[in-house]
Computed example of a mutant assay.
Amino acid sequence: MTTQIRTLYEQDFCLWLEETIKLLEEGRLSNVDLAHLLEELIGMSNSERSALENNLTIILMHLLKYAYQPEKRSNSWRVTIREHRRRISKAFKKSPSLKRYFAEVFEECYQDARALAADETMILLERFPAVCPFTPDESLNPDYLPN
């Protein structure tokens, strides 16, 4: 790998991407800035996982608010739930392996959602169940809302 391509990463990321693509297409693997390429690929994977966690946490927080503050239910809450379910559904279509990660982080996301719901609603954290009252399937079901 030339020092030039490595320097390019710091100076012009878009051009670095274009040059890296070109090198890969031409099969000139020894010229590829492998360290930065791996860094970017790992970052992309982490970004997909982080987006999944954020979307799931928002869904669970709004489901809790919907269940525990029926008098404050709004179209805005339903739209938020629907939008974040849609985002997860699209992510699963694009990357089916994220379903496994979804299962791994479901309870952790619920705990985050529980704390956020307590902060937002001013309901004591202890009033929300310690274990998620919604199944993973319910949380993603476009027709499900708690009573």
Rank of each mutant, 00 (worst) to 15 (best):
E107S: 11
Y66T: 03
P96N: 12
E40Y: 11
R82N: 12
R73Y: 11
A35P: 08
F13A: 07
R86E: 12
L140M: 13
G27V: 06
I42R: 08
Y9C: 03
N75Q: 11
I81T: 01
T80G: 00
F102E: 02
P70N: 04
L29I: 04
A67K: 13
N46A: 13
L64P: 12
W16C: 00
T7Q: 10
P146C: 00
R87P: 00
K65H: 01
P133T: 10
T2Y: 09
A130L: 15
F106S: 00
P129Y: 11
S74K: 15
Y144P: 03
A118F: 15
A118W: 15
L38H: 11
A130F: 13
T2H: 07
Y66D: 04
A130P: 06
S50K: 11
S47L: 07
L124Q: 13
T121R: 00
Y110R: 12
E83C: 06
L52R: 00
N31G: 04
A51M: 03
I123H: 03
T57L: 00
H62N: 05
W16D: 02
A115N: 09
S139Q: 08
P129A: 01
T2E: 01
G27S: 10
H36K: 03
L145F: 14
K65G: 03
I88N: 05
A117E: 12
W16I: 05
L60D: 05
S50I: 07
E104F: 13
I59K: 02
R100Q: 13
E107K: 03
T3H: 06
Y110G: 04
L63I: 05
E120Q: 13
H84A: 01
N75P: 05
C14D: 13
I5E: 05
H36M: 02
P146F: 02
E83K: 12
E138T: 04
L38K: 07
L34M: 08
E48C: 01
